[in-house]
């Protein structure tokens, strides 16, 4: 599989169709991958594709806006992210050549549990049990059935661990703002102190910002070093977008916040 990929990449570079290829290379062991940027034909052998290619590489596209880029996509969501970035005018469609590896690995990855694949967790290391116990694999609907107090307690416990490293933001393809609101000083929306309320505020506002633009690529969820189940939040906003506005991200619909219907949500505010 990696061979075909390398061949495609070699041709693209050799024919000068692209200036750089963004793909995956092996990480510190066989179970991890890291992003790689290849502009020399000799380096294409570094490219690999396997079930551990979990990062969403489209996050690197906006900074390469002016270059002709070939990009490897390992899952459908990564592909959707690229289209979203095109829609949001962050990259130029004609500058991007997509090397779609998603279909090739989907059969492989379906053999692994989803949560496991999300984080590359080994079956043996026992973390999966803890994972389930904490309710991380809970569906949005189930979570909504909990009482307000239970929900609050759940998130309080989660966000207590948050160290505000902003890894979730760094890996998110649609978090491309030149200067994130949390960095602002005039006004200061958040100060640097890490406390649970501020942590929560940050994630909540980030969710509102990626509302309708999140492709459920799980990059934030995977990147979180303290394992906050951010995917529960991204699934929640995807559900609301569908239920409230019939909106599914990445389908070319107008973003719910930049349009409206006069005869909708009539019961919402009275």
């Amino acid at each position: 599989m990696s061979k075909t990929l390398q061949e495609t990449a070699r041709n693209l570079l050799a024919e000068n169709k692209v200036e750089v290829i963004i793909g995956y290379a092996q990480g510190y062991d066989a179970f991890h991958t890291r992003p790689v940027f290849i502009s020399n034909v000799e380096d294409v052998s570094k490219l690999i594709i396997n079930e551990y290619c979990t990062n969403n590489l489209s996050v690197y596209l906006p900074i390469h806006k002016k270059l002709k880029v070939g990009i490897v996509t390992a899952k459908e969501q990564d592909l959707a992210s690229i289209h979203e970035l095109i829609n949001e005018h962050q990259i130029l469609e004609e500058n991007v050549i997509i090397i779609e590896a998603a279909k090739q690995i989907s059969s492989l990855s379906s053999e692994l549990g989803e949560a496991q694949r999300d984080r590359g967790i080994d079956e043996e290391d026992g973390r999966q049990e803890a994972w389930k116990k904490r309710g991380y694999d809970m569906a949005v609907e189930e979570f909504e059935k909990l009482s307000a107090k239970e929900r609050e307690t759940f998130w309080d416990k989660e966000f207590e661990r948050c160290i505000r490293c902003y890894a979730c933001r760094q890996v998110c393809p649609v978090c491309y703002c030149p200067d994130c609101f949390v960095n602002r000083t005039m006004p200061k929306y958040l100060n640097e102190a890490v406390d649970m309320n501020k942590n929560k505020l940050f994630s909540l506002v980030r969710m509102l910002h990626v509302f309708g633009r999140c492709m459920d690529c799980r990059a934030c969820n995977n990147a979180c070093p303290v394992g906050i189940p951010l995917r529960l939040l991204t699934k929640k906003i995807a559900k609301d977008a569908l239920e409230l506005f019939g909106y599914v991200s990445g389908q070319g619909q107008e973003h719910p916040f930049s349009t409206f219907e006069k005869d909708e949500l009539l019961e919402e505010i009275r």
Partner: peptide
């Protein structure tokens, strides 16, 4: 003319997200 319609949409999303995080409605 239209400002409150945009707000109505944002409100619907914010309200649900706040409730999801356990902030009392």
């Amino acid at each position: 003319t239209e400002g409150n319609y945009y707000w109505r949409r944002r409100h619907a999303v914010l309200k649900r997200l706040l409730e999801f995080l356990g902030i009392d409605e």
